[in-house]
Design a protein around this nucleic acid. Structure first.
Lengths: 237, 237
DNA sequence: CGGACACTTCGGCGTCGGCCGAACGGTCAC
DNA sequence: GTGACCGTTCGGCCGACGCCGAAGTGTCCG
């Protein structure tokens, strides 16, 4: 009979109120690409006055969801850390089923379909590329999804033999399921997903397209993915 | 250069706004025990007028986070499903580090310490009891936490030999890490955690204390946990 | 030094939403 | 039926907040 409110309630409400505004939500979703945006870019993206956005950024930074970096007359902001990104992802995944499925005309949009082919999701790979990698991991017994979500011993060896170092620092789990928005299936996130994505960009397996979060697999990338994971180029088309 | 807001933004903001009120947050946290509360119980718990709470419940039900069940002059509400519970858990876990650690006097509160010993977290076990079970699973190679969070083959066999059926229906993962609020460590959630908790209550391994979410391990429960998982009674004290 | 630019601060406007008490309607017990 | 009880609806109050444009501060460049 403790008819006392939970002490977490005020904190929970304050956190949620940060996300409870459509403009701030749009900013956070945009920042899910993991890169740093200037205040001006975000203002244009969200279609509000610069003054309005400045106040929003103040709240998000004060609330700890974003961190800022001042360079000259620019204010760069990005998601504070993997936890913050995970939070936004979780919320977005919850509402994903309610978002209308985009009608895909055959000749639909180059920009949208590039994003659907491959993109980054904070610091790991997503889109058809992310799913193809996750499927390949699972089929080859490197990743176990049937009883949870974890790398297998063979998976650890794969990273080792591929020369991709896994940082087991901090409390971030090695493997974590991240629900893919366009594919509606989980892909590989966590420290392993981040390491793989970093290596893929460093080694030239894929490159960023324009200033957006979309990525494109290179010819070298197709060879590497085929050799190391048995992924056929068609799976990425 | 798509300076178009993400279509998920409005949905995300509306979902977050449901959690962005302190009174509603207190209700959702209370409902995390997985049971159904009447509107009156919640009003007393949250310390607001019945009329105020009625409106809050209307919003939470309309938003799909709660489901209601009318019985005579009572309106029972509970969390809609495991996804909704997971959502509240995720948010609460995010703010957990900011919640002041309760000063534990030696002779501190019977009610609080009973909750710390063992409780339900939506539909699985939490508190020291939940942690003890999770640790035992991990030490005995039934659960893998070092590379993610998943049951092992030995874990599947354990459930089988213990006569606890695992429902692999729906998309709910078998094992999922749920951050324990009092212990600050992950415990076993997901379908396997739910099945284990259900069995523990059905088989009389533990019983609910009063009307709260706290549970107490019985003598039979101590024997069963010792025999099946090697958990010493001292670990539960 | 002067002008263009990026961002912030401020004042003011309008809206939204949480809160209550009072009145109402449905349910149960005697 | 009569009264106690639980929940809902309504009206009204008030504070919080998102939005803008205008003015101000600091930075970069020629």
């Amino acid at each position: 009979m403790t008819d006392r409110r939970d002490p977490r309630a005020p904190h929970l409400a304050r956190l949620a109120s940060l996300l409870a505004d459509e403009t701030r939500a749009a900013c956070l979703l945009a920042l899910l690409d993991g890169r740093a945006w200037t205040a001006g870019e975000l203002a244009r993206h969200a279609q509000v006055a610069a003054s309005t956005l400045s106040e929003h950024l103040g709240k998000l930074v004060a609330g700890g969801l974003l961190v800022e970096e001042r360079q000259g007359r620019h204010r760069y902001v990005r998601l504070a850390d993997a936890r913050a990104a995970q939070l936004v992802e979780d919320l977005a995944a919850y509402v994903a089923p309610r978002v209308v499925v985009r009608p895909r005309g055959l000749r639909q949009a180059g920009a949208g379909s590039a994003m659907a082919r491959g993109r980054t999701c904070y610091d790991h790979l997503a889109g058809r590329l992310g799913i193809a990698v996750t499927d390949a991991f699972t089929e080859r017994g490197l990743l176990r999804q049937d009883t949870g979500f974890a790398l297998t011993d063979a998976g650890l060896e794969w990273f080792d033999s591929a020369g991709i170092p896994l940082e087991r620092t901090g409390r971030r789990p090695l493997a974590r399921a991240c629900l893919d928005w366009t594919e509606r299936r989980p892909h590989l996130g966590g420290a392993a997903g981040a390491a793989l994505c970093r290596h893929a960009l460093d080694a030239g397996w894929c490159v960023r397209i324009g200033s957006e979060r979309a990525v494109k697999v290179t010819a070298a990338g197709e060879r590497a993915l085929s050799d190391l994971l048995g992924i056929r180029p068609e799976a990425l088309a």
